[in-house]
Design a protein around this nucleic acid. Sequence first.
DNA 1: CTTAAAACTAAACGATTGTTTAGAAATAAC
DNA 2: GTTATTTCTAAACAATCGTTTAGTTTTAAG
Lengths: 187, 187
Amino acid sequence: MARKKKYDEAEVVERAMNLFWRNGYVNTSMQMLEKEMGINKFSIYASFENKHGLFLKCLERYKTKVRGILEKLKNANNGVADIKQFFYDSVSSDFKDDHSKGCFITNTYNEFSQIEDQVIKEQVNSFMTELKKLIIEKLKMHKGKDEETIVREANYLLLAKHGLAAASRVNTEKEIEDYIELTFKNI
Amino acid sequence: MARKKKYDEAEVVERAMNLFWRNGYVNTSMQMLEKEMGINKFSIYASFENKHGLFLKCLERYKTKVRGILEKLKNANNGVADIKQFFYDSVSSDFKDDHSKGCFITNTYNEFSQIEDQVIKEQVNSFMTELKKLIIEKLKMHKGKDEETIVREANYLLLAKHGLAAASRVNTEKEIEDYIELTFKNI
DNA sequence: CTTAAAACTAAACGATTGTTTAGAAATAAC
DNA sequence: GTTATTTCTAAACAATCGTTTAGTTTTAAG
């Protein structure tokens, strides 16, 4: 009874994600999105309600993109070594298609840290919480560690991951790897 | 021969700095600045040329604000222990007057990392470079370390400082201190 | 072929951005 | 007190922001 869309939603989300990933939320305008996605403003609003809705779809897309790495960590059984491997996987994933965009989740976390936006914060936090849970789980595989040590080390690793992601926007892959090595020397 | 200003420039810069510090550059509008600084837009433009000029003045103000901590590090003579103390000083400085604003320089560094703005980048980088120089200098006080180790450790500490500053916007002071302790465990 | 629903184009929307201007008020030198 | 110079207030500026709307084109069912 009606016309068909001449664009693929998943495809235009992928393009939008790369733009948001590089520039952040406020520094990406609808005009830029129109151009990059290759569709009209109207179509964007028809498919994603508004800029905010589109951004959420992009965050989700990124999360499924890195889902594999998280699953790998989940299924691993070598404790700290697995966490270290997860750090390496994250870095090489973010360095893959394009340099210096960092981690989309960390970028978003930074940009929205002073802004009231419960929906986006939930999206970001759910990822962080899951990662923290997994890290604690892996740390518990080492029998010698008491509860307090584990919590402190998990906290340390999460902050390290944060610094790592921020740094990957400006530092070289080699520098990042040095950083990971030294980070895990302390664990 | 003319009228006198009824505001003190240093005073209104201080107010503007706190606003930029909390919200970042793009999320601070001239309207907000007018209100917070307590003077008219015209006066802002007369004193600081434009928003960008005002922001630079605020960055400079922050740098003189943390100058003391940096000088303390410069004049110290206990190597790694001094760097650690610098980390503690930075945290307690940023936690002092108001919580969860983080480090203004790091915030700016993050916000402008994908934006072409040579002037601001120079301001930020000059601070980073000086810090790196000092860290290397302190690390060299320990005779056993070869050049390569020193460079890697300095790089590690700078990234750690970065993560630390970002984290101080959301984590508690206690968590931050745990992080510092673990960071320096093996240096 | 007609008709109704959805997707397109393109222009316009009001709000807000940073910046400028016109004119009144204040001040110090003469 | 007059005059020249600067600071103030308040309004307006053009540009851009995210969003909406009017009108046309396409499509598939009746």
